[in-house]
Design a protein around this nucleic acid. Structure first.
Lengths: 336, 336
DNA sequence: GTGAAAGCGCTAACAT
DNA sequence: ATGTTAGCGCTTTCAC
């Protein structure tokens, strides 16, 4: 029942080329014939066939984003920015969310398949060398968010300095034994945050005490609430407890908070806590944290990507934003 | 640089038809030639062209979902189920999120465009008659979630009975003046919930007092935190305040909670509160609410949709699930 | 078992 | 200004 340009051409008494011209607002058509075509198209309730257009144009007008997990506040913030920025373009959005970490490569390959999208956005997606090589060789431009790779455009936050600031803040609050919660396996941003933590300790004339660092295997995915909960429990089980903890993410900090609560410990009295990300929940919880400007990062990512699609071959740039310390209740700072 | 089946055909010394057969695991190919083709494909690092396949097969292996707003906990829950169910199929996912309510129709049309997807999932998306007619006539099967329409398969919760249960529970807690927060404009689920609220009042021998019902215009989208906040403020400004409120959604209830907090009122002491949805935040907040089984709804929606894609023309079914009352702190019930 | 060739629905060069 | 026609990359019918 669906009509094609051939039907329109026949109905309007012109060739399919002319129909195509009219439909695509190409110049060189009399107003009269344009009218005829437009009317015929409406009469037949014409809709172009997306796949056919993509094939002929060699362009899908679609961008694909792979996100480790959709149902997560951090990625949600990014998606908001992505979606808003996309609304100002005429690109559609495909979402690839691996149901398991082991699926990441498959999903990336799928998202990058020829003829599927004009550009690829990878959120926190680890790129092994093999994948990176394939992606470089493939046509669709790639933009990385929350990761880096010299071969691709990227947008991320300075995780090291964020970890440094978080820890530094705790030192300034007079905390003596500052612990850290990370993830196992530790993703690249986690490593940077931990290194910032360690640098802050050293610069404050303290020694880095391995017994103050805890990580739990992440069953679901990295930086989970569960992981923070379990890591905090381990910290509490040890001989000398910390009196402050910098968690590598807000979700982990929230989990840590739960463990603290169950253990009957006061925050920030018995233990100060600083997270990382500033997800929406953190505001409600009063969690001190380092804010990642996720909305802007999402927007920027789309801007960068569309620019690369429009003008390929531009030099690659890596954008590093500064996370902002947001002081709330859990760090024990005055005021707030 | 990208290779096509012609390249493979040449490399393997066979025709493109044979290549296609091998690549699609079609029968009728010697093991020997199959080997040759496979090797050639690997040597050339072949990847099929998605648009070309879609066009030739008249099938995209993609399902499109339109969601009023991505960055929202309710839809996030649905998306989780959708994504998980999709992972078990070989469908990809396109997401259409109107950046403004006025964009809904445009986005639906876009999602439903020929050759874009094999099926359409509409989350809470209002269908005017015109749109509904077009969708019926178009090929891709449609499944509705959180809305209903006799012409389409749908999955929703019994909102009326949910509103009834919520209110009834408040009555049983001994609350005297039970108010209601709804949205303006009031979406269909909102209407049903309000009607359930009103029925419960009547059945409890009370009169429905319009001054106990408040709604605020929703600037962003329906059922927003802002809306609940503002509605609660109005309720508090009135002569006789309610001592309990049933909010049409958890987000609104959370906003109401904020207003209460700012007004220095105790929950549940001064005011009991019941929400609707049971989003993740509600557990952390201790909000009594009616749970929508979003994860299951998402899964079911995909199952229904893929079934319709595989076997078109099946009779339409409308599934109504029961929301479950989750008693927490804010309703003032004993225990937990 | 394999190949030739005709689509799928559209775009765009090239003619006229 | 309009039409003819050759693709885009793949699938699939129909011969052989």
């Amino acid at each position: 029942v669906a009509s094609t340009i051939y039907d329109i051409a026949e109905e309007a008494g012109v060739s399919t080329a002319t129909v195509s011209r009219v439909l695509n607002d190409n110049p060189g058509v009399t107003e009269k014939t344009r009218q005829q075509v437009v009317e015929a198209a409406e009469a037949l309730d014409y809709q172009p066939h997306a796949s056919a257009q993509s094939l002929a144009r060699q362009r899908t007008n679609t961008i694909a984003v792979v996100v480790p997990v959709l149902a997560n506040y951090f990625y949600l913030g990014l998606m908001r920015g992505i979606q808003q920025a996309l609304a100002e373009t005429d690109f559609d959005l495909m979402v690839y969310a691996p149901s398991h970490p082991s699926e990441v490569d498959t999903q990336v390959e799928r998202a990058a398949q020829r003829g599927r999208s004009d550009g690829l956005l990878l959120l926190s997606t680890p790129l092994n060398d093999d994948l990176a090589r394939r992606l470089q060789h493939a046509d669709p431009p790639v933009v990385l968010v929350d990761t880096q790779h010299e071969a691709f455009e990227s947008i991320a936050v300075d995780n090291e300095s964020g970890g440094y600031d978080a820890t530094r803040h705790l030192v300034e609050q007079g905390r003596q034994r500052i612990g850290h919660i990370t993830a196992d396996p530790e993703p690249p941003p986690g490593t940077a945050r931990r290194e910032g933590y360690q640098r802050a300790l050293r610069e404050s004339g303290r020694t880095v005490d391995a017994s103050l660092i805890a990580a739990c295997e992440q069953q679901t995915f990295v930086f989970s609430e569960e992981g923070g909960y379990c890591a905090m429990q381990r910290l509490l089980d040890r001989d000398t407890r910390p009196d402050a903890v910098f968690a590598a993410s807000d979700m982990q900090a929230l989990g840590a908070l739960r463990a603290l609560d169950e253990a009957g410990l006061e925050v920030p009295g018995d233990m100060a806590l600083v997270g990382f990300d500033d997800i929406e929940l953190s505001d409600r919880t009063g969690l001190t944290t380092l804010r990642q400007p996720v909305y802007d990062m999402g927007r920027m990512a789309i801007e960068r990507l569309t620019r690369r699609i429009e003008q390929p071959g531009q030099p690659i740039s890596s954008t590093i934003l500064s996370p902002e310390l947001i002081v709330r209740r859990t760090c024990g700072a005055a005021g707030g």
